[in-house]
Design a protein around this nucleic acid. Sequence first.
DNA 1: AACCAGGGAAGAT
DNA 2: ATCTTCCATGGT
Length: 283
Amino acid sequence: MERISIKGPYNFEQVLSRLALDPLNQIDQQERSVQVPLIVDGDKYVVKVTSTGTIEEPAFEVSGKTNQAVVFRLREIFQWVQPLNDIHAHFRHTDLAPIFKEHMGTPLVLDFDPYNCLLKCIVHQQLNLKFAHTLTQRFVTTFGTEVNGVYFYPDPERLARVKIEELRELQFSGRKAEYVIGVAQAIVEGKLELHKLHEKTDDEIMEELVKIKGIGPWTVQNFLVFGLGRPNLFPIADIGLQNALKKLYNMDRKPTKEEMEGYKQSWEPYASYASLYLWRSIE
DNA sequence: AACCAGGGAAGAT
DNA sequence: ATCTTCCATGGT
């Protein structure tokens, strides 16, 4: 058992309701806890994170088989290292001030694993969120592995051998099936080394990943935000963000990409947080 | 029934 | 380089 306390504001209730949208996540709203599947140094762990504090004075318990590296990884995933005060201060005098006020203390929580994140982004392309989650759940429960009641995504070696027809049965489109299998094969063949991306810049990662079939700008941007926790991305092709801005500015149309670029610049260097809070504003 | 969904590839201009 | 078309299927 490990106890952790951080500076507020940090709204873990929000985090849990957000995680609850993905049926793969094991949430206990009563207990205010979530089971977190992790792969650290090649070993699988399932640890339980429980909120024991408040928004102003956040505190957490981590239980299960843990060690220093696991806790370090949890700090990254739940962004316990990033004081949200600075972020809120940055947006206090922007058009987004009301949205940030309403969703005060919403952290940018990462996916439990960058590889999962990349696959999930591809599955989610151009699908409504509900069906996207259903499809992801089928994919992971069919080809992944279960540990203590929690599913891990199929590792690249397994996914690389999956046939397109097997994914078609789950209602993947033929193309989407090719894309996820292709990503797994690229990893197995050593053409894609996700663990080496940490040292690269956003632009370098964009240049590298868009070469892979099925990965376009939107997917890379989402991967940078939710896979690697990069702070300054604003996916201008994202329908959700376009709708959020249309609503914010009472427009009768969606913003153009030029307008989207302009908004992004005005929110740098924390554009990822603008994205995050805009998404919340239409949920 | 028609249109949209937290896109992207391939082909056409 | 920028603009279409097609992909496939659930949701509204």
